[in-house]
Amino acid sequence: MRKLGYAVPALLFLAIALLFATPFALRLDSHILPSALIDLPAPEFALPPIEGRPQTLGLATADLSGKPSIVNVFASWCVPCLAEHPMISRLAEEGFTVYGIDHRDPPDAVGAWLDRNGNPYARIGADRDASVSIDWGVTGVPETFLIDRKGRIRHKIVGPMTPDIFAEEVLPWMRELAR
């Protein structure tokens, strides 16, 4: 019993060390907020097209049902959005429906940005005051939502879509949703 007593502080230390090390081992990032909207229908919203670009069509809740889609929240002033743009374009090339929510952007700036980098979006809604972004629980740009054919949010990617996330998360999810 006495010998066991001496082991108690060491065991406690080990237990606490394990507790604190777990998030690192699992690569959990405390800055990423899990979405409260997973498996829920996308929020009710209707966004106009980008000012001066009626061909971007605007985006509303009704557009999200019927077939699986990807909703990408982006902005021309956001550098990680530019970094993930090739991945978003590839999704469109692979035949998936990609929609954009343009977050707090002056119309001229986003127009020039799309001209320069290409426009993979089937529709873009301009969210100039970020109120629809808040409805989607967006904490920053970019964020990407994967939507099933019933218009429910099934998965969310916070931050730029890297080639790894593209291959290991987005493609398998979209193939599953397309089935």
């Binding site: 907020l33 899990p34 979405s35 409260a36 909207l37 929020p43 808040i134 409805d135 989607w136 629980g137 904490t139």
Partner: peptide, 8 residues
């Protein structure tokens, strides 16, 4: 707000 961002 909780519906959008969770209890956090």
């Amino acid at each position: 707000m909780v519906a959008r961002y969770g209890d956090f």
